[in-house]
Design a protein around this nucleic acid. Structure first.
Lengths: 346, 346
DNA sequence: CTGAAAGCGCTAACAG
DNA sequence: CTGTTAGCGCTTTCAG
C-alpha cells in the first residue's frame, strides 16, 4: 500500500499540490491542458484521495451514523430491521453517503456510542431507530444541536424530524377489518411496552373497538416481547376463558408466527378457529401457512425516507414539515375467517 | 458544536497539547498530578477527541468495511444476512471496531465501493460476503495486498483467510438424514449457481446419494434463485413426473418456505406427501407450520468469527490456519416423514 | 489560471 | 516527566 498522495501526483504532473486538489474538485478556473496533465498523472500513479484527510479539512464526513438500540438481538431477530437497513443503504449510497453502524447492549452503551460518533465527529448526522418513551439519546442530540432524524416518533418532542407510519390508523384498520369480517371479540398482542410504537398500535386497536361499541377487555390484551417464544402461556390463558376472542390483532408478524404455532400446537386451526392479522408484512408473511393477513407498513420506504430526510436536512434544505408519514395498507390473505353469523352489520 | 480541541484543554490545564495527548492515551510516564489536572480540564470543557484527526495521524481507522454484494435485495430478503451482521457487529464493537457499510447494485459498483473504501483508506480491512466463483474483488484485494477475509470460500484461492461452513458435509448430512428416514428418491433445490456455496451444497447432496448407491437424476435438481417465488413451476414439473421424489433437500430455508407453500397450494401435505429439509435454521424455521427440519449453520457465529478473524489479522496475530470452519448441525423437527416401508436399511 | 503558505486536530520523535 | 517541533494528506486563502 505505497500511499500515493497529491504531492506525488503534483510532482509527476509538474504542478503544485493545490492545482491537483483543484482538478479533483472540478474547480472552474483551471486550464483544460493542466487538468488533463494532472488526470494523466493520477491515472498512471493510481491515485486515490485519502478520505480521512479530506474529512479532517472539510469537516464533513459524508457518513450517517446508525446506532442499534438496546439488544440488537431483539432488533435483528426480526426481518423488520434488515428491510429498514436495506432502504437506508439504498438511499444513502445513492446520495453518496456511507453508513457507520454500531450496536449497543444497553442504554448506557447506546449513549456512549452516540457520543463517540457525534463528538468524535465521525458522522454528519444520526439516525435513531424506534425511540423509547422519554429517550435520553434524543435529549442529548437536541442539547448538542446535532442533526438527526428518528424512525418512529418522539412522544416528548413532536417537532423533531421523524419518519413514521400512522400506527394508530394502521392498528385501527387492522382491527376494523376483523370487525368487518364479523368478529366481535377481538384480542390484541402488543409489542415491548417501552416503545412508542407499541402504545400507538394499542391505541388504534382500542379506538376501533370503541367506535364499533365493542367490548374492550383488559384480559384480551397480551403484552408480548417482540421476540417469539415469550409469554405464550398467556395465549392459552386467553383461549381457555369461556368467552375467548375469535380473532387477534398481533402487532408484529414474527410474534404472530409464534402465536400461530402455539395455537396450532394447542389444536386450533387458523383461520377456522382463530383469526389473526399481523403487522409489518415481512417477506415470510406471504409464504407462511396459511399466508398471513397483515398490515404492510412499507418497511423499505421507512428506511429509505429516513435516510432521505436526514440527508435533506444535512444539505440545508429547509424542510417545512419535520414529520414524514409512510403510508400503510392492509394486505388481505388467508389468516382471517369471515364470520357470517355476525349479529349485525356496522 | 463549538469543537473543543486538545489545544483548548492544554491551555486550560496549563500544559502542552502533547501532554494532553499523552493523558488521553494513558502514557505511562505522566505524573498523577498533571494527569488529574488535564482530566479536569477535559471534563469541564466537555472535550472529546476528533476521531478523524486521530485516524489521519495514526493511519488506522479501527473500522471494518463491508460491501454488500450485488443486489442487496437478494441478500436482505433473507434473514441470513441480518443474523450474520448481528454477529459481526457484536464482535467488532466488543473489539472497539466500527462497521462501515455500503451496498452495490452490480459488480461494477461493488468494485468501485471497495476501491473507495480501501484506497480512500476509510477502513483497515474488508469483509467479503459469499464470493462468487472467480470473484474479481478478491483478485483486486490480493493485488493490493490489503487485509480481508471472506465469509464463504474462494474457489481459486484456497489460502485466502476465510470463515465458512463445511457446506459439502452439511448437505451430505441433510441428504443422509432423508436416506436414513427411508427416502430413496430425493430431489435438490439449489441456490444461485454463481455462488461458491451453491456448488458445495450440491456436491454434498450428490455425494450422499452416490455413497448410498441411490439414483442421481438431473431432473430432480431444481435451480432456484435465492429469492422465493422464482421457478416454482419447476416444482410442479418435478412433482408431476411418474417417479417423483418423496423428499427434497432445499439449500435455503426461505426458498423452502416458498416451496412448501407451492406444494401445499398444489394439494400436497408436508411431511405426509413430501418431506423437506432446509438450510440455515433462521428464526422462523422453528415457527413455521410444520416446524422445519433444517441444517443449522451457525449464522451468528459465521458473522462473529469473520469479524474476529479479520481483527486478529489486523492486529498482526500470526494466524497459522487461514480457514476457520464453523460447525453445523442438523436440527430435526417435523418437515420430514419416516418412510417405514423403505426397502432396506443402510 | 496557478503556486506558496497556513492549518484542520492530533500524535510522535527528540530534546530537555 | 513534559514542551517543542514536525508532520499525517488534503483544502484554501492570498498573492501573483
Amino acid at each position: 500500500m505505497p500511499s500515493v498522495t497529491v504531492k506525488d501526483v503534483a510532482r509527476l504532473a509538474g504542478v503544485s499540490p493545490s492545482t491537483v486538489s483543484r482538478v479533483i474538485s472540478n474547480h472552474p478556473r483551471i486550464s483544460k491542458a493542466t487538468a488533463e496533465k494532472v488526470r494523466q498523472a493520477m491515472e498512471t500513479l493510481g491515485y486515490h484521495p485519502n478520505m480521512t484527510a479530506k474529512k479532517l479539512v472539510s469537516k464533513s464526513t459524508k457518513t450517517l451514523g446508525l446506532v442499534l438500540p438496546r439488544s440488537a438481538e431483539e432488533l435483528f431477530a426480526n426481518p423488520f430491521f434488515s428491510e429498514v437497513l436495506r432502504g437506508m443503504l439504498a438511499c444513502a449510497n445513492q446520495k453518496q453517503y456511507d453508513l457507520l453502524m454500531s450496536s449497543a447492549n444497553n442504554p448506557k452503551e447506546e449513549m456512549e456510542t452516540v457520543t463517540r460518533m457525534v463528538l468524535g465527529r465521525q458522522v454528519d448526522g444520526m439516525i435513531l431507530i424506534k425511540p423509547r418513551k422519554a429517550d435520553p439519546v434524543i435529549e442529548k442530540l437536541l442539547a448538542l444541536d446535532f442533526p438527526f432524524v428518528v424512525l418512529g416518533r418522539s412522544l416528548e418532542h413532536p417537532d423533531v424530524p421523524a419518519v413514521n407510519n400512522d400506527n394508530i390508523a394502521a392498528a385501527f384498520d387492522a382491527t376494523f377489518h376483523l370487525i368487518n369480517q364479523g368478529h366481535r371479540r377481538i384480542g390484541f398482542v402488543s409489542g415491548p411496552p417501552e416503545l412508542v410504537v407499541s402504545g400507538d398500535r394499542l391505541a388504534g386497536y382500542q379506538k376501533a373497538l370503541s367506535q364499533a361499541k365493542l367490548p374492550l377487555r383488559d384480559e384480551w390484551v397480551i403484552a408480548s416481547d417482540i421476540l417469539p417464544k415469550n409469554g405464550f402461556h398467556a395465549v392459552s390463558m386467553v383461549m381457555n376463558a369461556p368467552d375467548r376472542p375469535t380473532a387477534f390483532v398481533v402487532s408484529d408478524d414474527v410474534v404472530a408466527f409464534g402465536m400461530i404455532r402455539e395455537l396450532v400446537g394447542a389444536g386450533y386451526q387458523i383461520p377456522e378457529d382463530v383469526s389473526v392479522v399481523g403487522f409489518n408484512n415481512i417477506v415470510l408473511s406471504e409464504l407462511s401457512n396459511p399466508p398471513m393477513t397483515t398490515v404492510d407498513i412499507g418497511i423499505y420506504h421507512l428506511g429509505y425516507q429516513t435516510a432521505r430526510h436526514l440527508i435533506r436536512i444535512l444539505q440545508g434544505e429547509k424542510v417545512a414539515e419535520p414529520n414524514v408519514t409512510v403510508p400503510h395498507r392492509l394486505v388481505i390473505r388467508q389468516s382471517v375467517r369471515f364470520l357470517p353469523h355476525a349479529d349485525d352489520a356496522l
